[in-house]
Design a protein around this nucleic acid. Structure first.
Lengths: 203, 203
DNA sequence: CCGCAACCTGAGAGGCGCCTCACCTTCGTT
DNA sequence: AACGAAGGTGAGGCGCCTCTCAGGTTGCGG
């Protein structure tokens, strides 16, 4: 790749990163090109589809999630690790409306299987320690993502940080102790197949 | 209003109701007109703005919510009433992607103050009975709406009913008993002013 | 320094949805 | 029956966004 092409690619990524971050994934491509100081044609030269651009911008995130997951697994307490992991992921969402969108629509690139299997281990460990309620499954984590994503989107400008309260309440519902006063969960969890459809990056 | 005008208005409402219900609030107006067997001009004659159409379509819902709230207040058990109310509202959301959107963006017509003050009484009663955790406020109910709405939207075609599981987990986090194992909530609730901005219909 | 391949550019075609308005039809009243 | 007002119609203008391509420019190996 020629030097100027590399340069433009970087300018485009910088512009996209910033616009995605505070406006979400639906920013007009023209605006990204303009912000990068480059023509729309160049954008299409470097990134033939919007998806390609999104993938490039959020390429690093999957690795970050994987790192969060590994850290979570080394935590002394299984529940603390579980909480730290979910908090970390939600912080990523709250820091970047674009990533927030990525988390909701399954629209990521990078290493899918890696993060997912780590996450299974986090859940298994929290189950084993008896702190995560037994009737909750890995697939239920999607509810957390969707829920927090919705709160992030709604409160991003008006009350950033409000999602932490939502997350805290959600986590309290996932504790083993929360299940004891409660009836059995009303419907079965999403099947892995359904989850694969709804969150393709977790296939 | 002339007879044919009334007739067309009804056809438009029927079409809008049905399209909103399974595609959400962003259906093209042209498609609504076509479905109603009427020209786009007629649609604009009856409903000068999209908002006017949305208001007309969901006019009844506020009354339904008010009825749910009243029933909830007559329940023998305060917590059961609280649960029944939230479940009822969520059922409305799950039954109609359009109403689901209405619930998220504050985009309703009808009687605003009425439903909101009833809801406050439901929350107060559940607090008074000691079953709803004390550190939760009326404003936190927005998290429930946003969260369930997100799950409804994600699973509407693939796993309708999955929201019931999400709701059950959420409710378990709102029980008084859920607070005892937990740290204090990390951030203050939304202020009434913030809520008014984020959910205008609850002003 | 040459020359070519890679690259950049931006006008413009095309699609989509919103909304208007000049013209025609129909209702309902007298 | 006749007429005026209310209503219906849909082509077309507008704005927004996506995507392409013919023509001009530039990096870079030889």
């Amino acid at each position: 790749m020629r030097k100027d092409a590399v340069h433009n690619r970087e300018r485009l990524l910088r512009a996209a990163r910033s616009l995605f971050a505070d406006r979400g994934l639906d920013v007009p491509l023209e605006e990204i090109a303009r912000t990068a100081g480059v023509s729309i044609g160049t954008l299409y030269n470097r990134f033939p589809t919007r998806q390609a651009l999104v993938d490039a911008v959020f390429e690093d995130r999957m690795a970050v999630v994987a790192r969060l997951a590994e850290e979570a697994l080394t935590a002394d307490d299984a529940w603390d690790g579980f909480v730290a992991f979910l908090t970390g992921v939600c912080e990523l969402q709250a820091a970047d409306l674009g990533y927030n969108d990525v988390a909701v629509r399954g629209a990521a690139a990078g290493d899918p299987a890696g993060g997912y299997s780590l996450m299974r281990r986090i859940v298994d460990r929290a189950h084993a320690s008896g702190q995560l309620r037994a009737d909750v499954t890995l697939e239920d984590m999607a509810f957390v993502t969707w829920g927090i994503a919705a709160t992030v989107r709604a409160t991003f400008r008006v009350a950033p940080g409000a999602w932490r309260r939502h997350l805290a309440l959600t986590l309290d519902g996932l504790r083993a102790s929360a299940a004891s006063d409660s009836r059995p969960l009303p419907v079965p969890p999403l099947t892995p197949e359904q989850t694969a459809v709804l969150m393709p990056e977790c296939g």
